[in-house]
Design a protein around this nucleic acid. Structure first.
Lengths: 150, 150
DNA sequence: AAAAAATAGTTTGACGGTCAAATTACCTGG
DNA sequence: CCAGGTAATTTGACCGTCAAACTATTTTTT
């Protein structure tokens, strides 16, 4: 069994369907006006307090201009609060509104199911190994892969 | 330390990173006018002969209208050939041109390089566990693909 | 302290990707 | 032959994205 083929096949198939399915999961729920992209922005903002635009944009790997547009729509729909920082008036701080937090939690159930599917039939030890492997890959993609041959 | 949270976070970030890197790899390569979406369409058409629009659209999970637009652009750029079927003149058959085939092979080498880079980062044990986890993830998306409740 | 440079965010203009619904062209079964 | 079904395209409306220009503010330099 060739691990490379498995990885490649899985990656290709996953990338082809993951967005479609996640989009469907989000839009059939209680929060019909939330796009998949909206949800990713909300995930990046997170539940814990305020973040500035640049930080969130960087974590999503989009420009701040792109994030501005996404946040405009989320503010209009009532999922995100936006305020200017008092310490540095160039900075804009964004956070999830109560409605945004509820939508976030609603969607996190989808992720929980996904994780359950992944880890079922993995032993505790295998789960640890997987965590380590993914962390390594994450590091790799954040640093090396962006600069080198790809 | 909650392993499930770690896994979830890493998966979300990895998917984002890989998408960004793939997009960048495609557009900075030899075939600069090919978008990531173009490449996915070419993958769905495949190397083996002609396919009709409906079949390709279904395999990509988009409407035929969406595919028409993508194929218009691919034909204009010379990557795809499009002919009407003689047996059933409603049907349009699409296939990769020689240039399209070269682009497809070029991109598949990118996949190989990326997979190699990933595999090199991981121990044998980590590779095995990752393969198992991705297989589970793939099954999760395939089996929940057409269910409605989340 | 004034001028210059840097930083944070928004706006603008242009594309690409998506869908639903209307439309065109063409089978096919009765 | 025609009524209904099927394959694909067109249309109109959004969303997501970027680069580049711009505004407002802060920091650095002189």
């Amino acid at each position: 069994m060739d691990i490379r083929n498995t990885l490649n096949e899985m990656l290709v198939r996953l990338f082809r369907s993951v967005n479609v399915i996640e989009e469907r999961a989000i839009r059939t729920g209680e929060y019909k006006d939330v796009t998949a992209n909206d949800m990713h922005v909300m995930e990046a903002i997170g539940m814990d307090g305020m973040k500035n635009m640049t930080r969130v944009a960087r974590s999503l790997e989009v420009t701040t201009g792109t994030l501005t547009i996404a946040v405009n729509s989320l503010v209009r729909k009532g999922y995100v609060d936006r305020v200017r920082s008092e310490e540095d008036r160039r900075v804009v701080l964004i956070s999830l509104s109560d409605k945004g937090k509820r939508a976030y939690l609603h969607h996190s159930r989808f992720h929980e199911r996904m994780i359950s599917a992944v880890v079922e039939e993995l032993t505790d030890e295998e789960q640890q190994v997987l965590g380590k492997a993914l962390t390594k890959l994450d590091q790799f993609f954040m640093t090396t892969a962006h600069q080198t041959m790809f």
